[in-house]
Computed example of a mutant assay.
Amino acid sequence: MKAIICNQFGLPDSLIFGELQDPKPAKNQILIAVEACGVNFPDVLIIQGKYQFKPELPFSPGGEVAGKVIELGEGVTQFQVGQSVLALCGWGGFAEKVAVDVDRVFAMPPGLSPEIAATTLYTYGTSFHALKERAKLQEGETLLVLGAAGGVGLAAVELGKLMGAKVIGAASTDEKLELCREKGASETINYTSEDLKTRIKELTGGKGVDVIYDPVGGDFTEAALRGIAWKGRYLIVGFANGEIPKIPMNLPLLKGCAILGVFWGQFSKLEAKQSFQNIAQLVQWIKAGKIEQHIRKRYSLEESPQALQALLDRKMLGKGVVLI
């Protein structure tokens, strides 16, 4: 089968387009003919050997796919050959076929296109879990989203607005901030030209923000934390900046705030029932037109490394998708 191949850990330009042996489904696995694969920041980390999991070389990146079932492994009875599904494979999605554990496969809801299905789970699943289970965001609260024009950030802006919060979107360019306003941010901060802490205080009348959603890390984390409200909740989602920040621990004490980790992949495994309920709610909102994925660009399989480079360069507004 044709695939994007990682033969050694490195940057996107080290990936090659070539042939890999067709996978075979093991016990309790499903073989999927991939139609679309979402492009996500963990893909950038996994090809560099920097993610929580390290697959054996060679492998294909791509962890969020939609396609059709073409073969069932031993013990699989809940799916049928020919059925449309979406799946969280971790890696292997930038290829024509991928074998996935059955507990990471979901029946495709009617009316959902493969490209929308393959770009929804990571971004909206992560952001909904973060705001709902971890922050327990309440109607009328103020939510600050860092990296607000990226995949998970834009989903957090849209979901925060839908959940009744006042949303402040923070990003690095005016183009990105305009997209944030289109998705529901009532206020924006350009943190390359404005002081983040000062602007937070100005926009909240000195109170600070109730919830901070941070998929960026780096220097912005401490500045944002200094602008959090009393008993605020700070969500650690990721480190797109490339730097894991060191937080002065006197700040949570002085603010009476909570710092909460968001690891949606682990949540979806350990709390599968709640994760399924969240996904069902997201699908309902998508079909009702209440949320809509912003797909920045569509790529061919051979162009997949370009999609990962755009993520690495922080030039991807919204979400990219590879169509196979």
Rank of each mutant, 00 (worst) to 15 (best):
L253F: 04
L20R: 07
K273P: 03
G49V: 05
C180W: 05
A155S: 15
A223N: 04
P215C: 05
V157Q: 07
S268N: 08
A229V: 12
G67V: 10
S300W: 01
I279T: 11
M249V: 09
L235Y: 00
L72I: 11
A87P: 10
I212A: 03
E158C: 05
L20F: 02
F94W: 15
G206R: 07
V322M: 05
A66D: 03
Y234C: 02
D313N: 15
E175S: 13
P25V: 08
P114K: 04
V81R: 12
I295Y: 12
A170M: 12
L88H: 11
D101F: 01
L15E: 10
I291G: 10
R181H: 13
I70Y: 01
A229G: 09
G90W: 05
M108I: 05
R104N: 15
A3N: 13
G261K: 01
I279V: 03
I5M: 09
N7M: 00
I47Q: 07
A107G: 11
R298H: 14
A223S: 14
T120P: 08
I30D: 06
T188W: 08
F53W: 06
E182C: 08
A148C: 13
A223R: 09
Y191A: 05
E303D: 15
E158G: 02
S84N: 14
T77C: 14
S193N: 14
A240S: 15
A148H: 00
P12M: 08
A95C: 10
V262I: 10
A33T: 04
K273L: 11
G206I: 11
A223P: 04
S60W: 02
F128E: 14
A170L: 11
K97W: 01
A165E: 08
G62F: 01
G18H: 06
T204Q: 12
F128D: 07
A223T: 02
G205W: 03
V216F: 06
A272I: 07
G261D: 00
M1C: 06
L308K: 09
V157I: 15
G289Q: 09
Q281L: 13
E187Q: 11
E292Q: 15
E56W: 01
P245N: 06
Q138C: 01
V65S: 00
I286A: 06
I244H: 02
V34A: 13
L225I: 04
W91F: 14
I228Y: 02
G289D: 09
L179Y: 05
Q293P: 03
R199N: 15
V145N: 04
I16R: 09
C257P: 14
A171G: 11
E302F: 04
L260H: 07
A223Q: 08
I16W: 00
G38P: 06
E96A: 08
I247N: 07
P12I: 03
D22W: 03
G151S: 08
L311Y: 07
F9K: 07
G75D: 09
L45G: 02
I247G: 08
K68L: 01
G232M: 01
S268W: 04
G90D: 10
P61Q: 04
I324V: 12
T198L: 15
E96C: 05
A310P: 09
I259G: 01
A258P: 08
V283E: 05
E271T: 06
R199T: 04
A135Q: 00
K50S: 15
A95L: 13
C257R: 01
P23D: 02
I189E: 03
I295H: 04
A117E: 08
V262G: 13
L112Q: 02
L121G: 13
F220I: 07
L11M: 02
